[in-house]
Design a protein around this nucleic acid. Structure first.
Lengths: 105, 105
DNA sequence: ATACTTTATCGCAATATTACGATAATGTTT
DNA sequence: AAACATTATCGTAATATTGCGATAAAGTAT
C-alpha cells in the first residue's frame, strides 16, 4: 500500500486499523466464522470448505494469528487453530468505543 | 490485491469485509473521529490536521463515501462532509452480530 | 472576464495484498 | 529408514493500496 504513515497516528488508531484489516477480507471473515462454529479445527478443514488453496488459507491464518485474533497449538501432525477470546474482546471493545464516539452529527 | 474471490462468499461476508476495510487504515480512523468530533467539516479542515496532502485526504474521503460511512453535501465553494448515521448503525450491527457469534471456543 | 478558493481527479511510483504451485519442514506410521 | 500426512514458507504473477504533485472542475469574489 505505498508508504503508509502509521508513525504519525496514535497507538489506538493503528491498533483499531490493524484489527479491522484482519477482518477486511471475506475469506478471513469466513475463516473466523468457521473457526467459531467448529470450536477449533485444522488448516485442512478450512481448505475443504473454502475455494482457496492450502497455501492461501495458511497465509490468511497467519494474518489472523499475527493480529492475535486466533491462536494455534501444535497437535499431533498438524496445527489446531481456535479463536482467541481475549483479542476478540479487545476488538469488540475498541470497535464499540469507536462507534460510540461517533454518536453525533 | 490479486484476484480476490469475492463472488464465492456471501453478501454479508463481503459487506462486513468492505465496512472493515474502510476503517482498516489509521488515516481513515482519524478522519472519522475528526468528522464525528466536529460534526461536519470540509476537506481542507482535515488536511490541516493530518500529515497528508490534499489529494490523499480527498481519496480517503472518497473511500469512506463509497462504502457509505460518510456523506458529502456541496456547500458554497466546497463540499461539507459528515458521518452517515445509518451506515454507521449498519456497521455497528454487523460487527456486533459477527462478534456475538464468536462466543464459543 | 479574471483571479481566487476549494475539492476532485489523473498519472505516476512505491509498496502491500492476494493467490497459487512448488517445496521445505515436521511429525507419524509402516 | 521410507513413505505418508499436514502445515508453513518461498517464489512469482496479478492486482490493489497509499501517497503525492499536477491539473482539472466549479463556484465566488473582485
Amino acid at each position: 500500500m505505498g508508504i503508509s504513515k502509521t508513525e504519525f497516528f496514535t497507538e489506538d488508531q493503528n491498533r483499531l486499523a490493524a484489527l479491522a484489516k484482519a477482518i477486511a477480507h471475506p475469506a478471513r471473515v469466513a475463516i473466523l466464522q468457521f473457526l467459531a462454529k467448529s470450536g477449533a479445527c485444522f488448516c485442512g478443514d478450512i481448505v475443504e470448505v473454502l475455494p482457496l488453496s492450502q497455501s492461501t488459507v495458511s497465509q490468511h491464518l497467519k494474518a489472523l494469528k499475527e493480529v492475535g485474533l486466533i491462536k494455534g497449538s501444535i497437535e499431533k501432525t498438524s496445527t489446531c487453530y481456535c479463536v482467541d477470546p481475549e483479542t476478540l474482546e479487545e476488538a469488540r471493545l475498541m470497535l464499540g468505543k469507536f462507534f460510540n464516539k461517533m454518536n453525533c452529527c
